[in-house]
Write a protein that binds this DNA or RNA. Sequence first.
DNA 1: CTGAAAGCGCTTACAG
DNA 2: CTGAAAGCGCTTACAG
Lengths: 345, 345
Amino acid sequence: MVRRPGDSSLGTAPRPARIRDVAELAAVSVATVSRVLNEDARVDPELRDRVRAAAAQLDYRPNRLARNLRRQQMDAIGVVVPDIENPHFAEMVRIVEHIALERGHRVLVCNTDEDGERQASYLQMLADERVSGIVLSPSDSTGNIDLLRDLNIPVVTIDRTLKVGGTDAVVADNIPAVRAATHRLIQAGHRSIAFVGGRPEVETGSERQEGYLAAMEEAGLTPLLADGGFRRDAAEAAVTQLLAGGCSASALVVANNLMALGAIRAIRLAGARIPTDIAVISVDNPPWAELLDPPLTVLAQPIRAMATRAMELLIRRIGGERFPAVREIYPLELIIRHSCGTNQL
Amino acid sequence: MVRRPGDSSLGTAPRPARIRDVAELAAVSVATVSRVLNEDARVDPELRDRVRAAAAQLDYRPNRLARNLRRQQMDAIGVVVPDIENPHFAEMVRIVEHIALERGHRVLVCNTDEDGERQASYLQMLADERVSGIVLSPSDSTGNIDLLRDLNIPVVTIDRTLKVGGTDAVVADNIPAVRAATHRLIQAGHRSIAFVGGRPEVETGSERQEGYLAAMEEAGLTPLLADGGFRRDAAEAAVTQLLAGGCSASALVVANNLMALGAIRAIRLAGARIPTDIAVISVDNPPWAELLDPPLTVLAQPIRAMATRAMELLIRRIGGERFPAVREIYPLELIIRHSCGTNQL
DNA sequence: CTGAAAGCGCTTACAG
DNA sequence: CTGAAAGCGCTTACAG
């Protein structure tokens, strides 16, 4: 049994009006209704008003699912980040979203939780739903982008990028920044400096480690790597183990803000003091960094500029513009606070 | 001109295979292909294998947009939160997402940024796309849920709830918690206690304020309200103004963690010390609370339990289960650290 | 168990 | 400017 719009027997909600209902009420064709609603072609003003009135009267809302099928796209931008609990990415999402909404795009946020499989499945989903574009900060730099490319869905990567080329990338200049920071610790007299690293299989992880290693090597010092996997708890465990191992590290370079939290906690629990016993420098500048005890010395990333640029590129691609893939690199800023030893750097 | 699957002239990507192509290759009907792919009815094993082989050979992926239209739903759970940069909601999102994925649901995250209009437009979008259910933490408690109800899309609210009844709600027991915390400050000798509040038009905002007011009134003390709008910067400005106004507040009750950051910063900038000059208690227990200077006394919410319960309810609703709307209330836990004065409470 | 056919609700060449 | 009609790619009663 097919229910008609008017047919609202008690209990069940009335079936929503379809375009055909509007057409009938306005005494025009469905094509005309469609045109009016999409402000498409020039339609006779009188018909336009009739259609609008009919639509209003029936409380008509176009069925998006039908439109999606017909157009083979869902008209939204997907934002895929590795860890929504990381304030760095949370801020990025907010900025991207703000710009997208401003430009009339809807946005869908997906959190891959530093998991390659989840990334794959979310990208698959966004491809299946035919989003118009994707801002991706990969959990897995080997991520498969082919399906997106086949479907002509533009992707711009941000913060971290993909192994395969061909997509626009907006990244931070990690290597020199971490190298310089490590170098300054060395100049301040530190000889035993450990690196609390994030997943080396990801660009930011490997680059930050590389920067640290370069500085250590230049100074002829032995590097000391602790694996924090970009996560707070893992970093806490790694640093606890480091300290328990009788290691004599007098300084720590930490690869992101979540791990800084874990590292600091581990140091405290071990009864050591910052910066007296152990100096700390971390990447990222979350709002609480300056309020910590002691205030945290950081390498701040220009998230707003990066996110803005990424959206600019994506929107141009969505608009069909064609240009060679760009890779843009933004410098980090060293903000010296107290956790690295006052004014020592 | 219609392009056929095989027809991949240079340059353009080959059109993706459709169900009909699979059917032809496997020499069965499209109905059979559909059945095999949906593991629907019992299909003859031989046909099944043929279909699977054909699908694999053509690298067939069902067109989700067509399926969505046919089924009138997109098979995903929408998660709508007021502020993705607030670690409280970020954690909630992660837990909800984890459970959803575990149960085979895809998830779409939407951030309404404490904005009623954005909430309306995201709910509209999720309705239009026919998600199977929504976890909503409202930015605007007057939010319109009717369209969701008309479409039979279940909604459960979490943390904050809606004015209109009829939806399941999982909330924290804000009033007694804030009242008790305020009361303890009073017992510790404080007479001038200010409240840094979040948007009173939202449930958590009004309830926390109510708890504070109740305690003050019971003690015959004059309340002092500062509006922080649940935002860090606004709270910093409000507290700065409070202190500049020559107010003699010796303690602050802050309604969420973001505002605590702002309040602490304002106190520092004003040259006052915590807890000596001003004691601070805040709602929320983000990971950095214990690492602040001084460690922050907080009212912690059982986010995991709340999010888990919310998902349980939602999944039952999605499964078609019918039961009266529930409202579940979870207690907060007072965690005493140093920011309220050592052991004074 | 299997297939032919209807239909989900739009959009968009095509003709007039 | 307007309408009749085809078609987007599936799913699912219905018959056999």
